[in-house]
Amino acid sequence: MELAMGIMLGLLGLGAGCAMIAGIGPGIGEGNAVAAACEAIGRQPECKSSVTSTLIMGCAIAETTGLYGLIVAILLIFVAPGMFTGILKDAVTSMKG
């Protein structure tokens, strides 16, 4: 029982870590967006304000996929253990009985 619980919790932690690989994509995408915005401001400094607001807006939208990964990781760490421990206990008791 303890071994099964330990394996389960460890795998949940591992899964949460794997879910955060999703952070790579938005990182690259936002880097590209900022690079393009810097270029645009360098070329036309007079439209700095509109470029900045568009950039922040776009960055926030590009972040979404990363946030999905983050939500999965948070659920795996804070919600899943409570849920799965009950299932595991039920399975073990039914196996014994």
Partner: peptide, 13 residues
């Protein structure tokens, strides 16, 4: 769905 999760995820994180 993405609107809800975007807002919620940012504040929660």
């Amino acid at each position: 769905l993405s609107m809800a999760f975007r807002h919620y995820g940012n504040i929660l994180s």
